[in-house]
């Protein structure tokens, strides 16, 4: 069962650092699983709670945000805001019974192609181990997605 499950993973990259890191991983021909799909945003500070939740709701099995290194945000504080938001979403998904490990924040400067590829590999492994998103992973502290949908 485990080996046939191919998770869908969405990655939000800021256009300055992390998108460039992903490009660099490409020009260095570093290999990572095909599961990761990249969505470019101007700044990770633009990624809101809804977007992260929506990704999981639409059926992505994991979602991560990759921003500039802390202190290097081209818009000063965007990545710090994203960090807080990701932490918040982790709590939220836990409340609805999903494993918070499905949501993560990473930091990759535009020179960190190898590290970006590593993030993709590690995160894919993590999600592969967690299994598909629809499975409620532990006792929810709030309504399940199904209950929410019916409400």
């Amino acid at each position: 069962m485990e080996c046939t499950f191919e998770p869908v993973i969405l990655c939000f990259c800021c256009q300055w650092c992390s998108y460039a890191a992903a490009d660099l991983a490409g020009s260095m021909r570093l290999q990572y699983p095909t599961n990761v799909k990249i969505l470019k945003v101007p700044c990770t500070g633009r990624v809101d709670v809804i977007s992260l939740l929506k990704a999981l709701e639409e059926g992505a099995d994991g979602v991560f945000v990759s921003g500039c290194l802390i202190g290097d945000c081209h818009y000063v504080l965007g990545n710090q805001r994203a960090t807080k938001r990701v932490a918040y979403v982790k709590k939220l998904v836990e409340t609805i019974g999903l494993n918070p490990e499905r949501v993560e924040m990473f930091y990759n400067s535009s020179a960190m192609g190898p590290q970006f590829a590593q993030c993709c590999r590690d995160f894919t492994d993590r999600i592969r181990n967690l299994g598909p998103v629809c499975k409620i992973e532990k006792t929810a502290t709030g309504p399940t997605p199904e209950q929410r949908a019916s409400a």
Binding site: V8, L10, L39, V41, P42, S51, K54, E58, G59
Partner: peptide
């Protein structure tokens, strides 16, 4: 980078068939 534009991409990230499988 409106909500609509970003959401449309998120909606499309899961292939239609894949979504059914869940």
């Amino acid at each position: 980078y409106t909500d609509e534009e970003i959401f449309s991409q998120i909606d499309a990230v899961v292939p239609p068939r894949h979504a059914h499988a869940h």
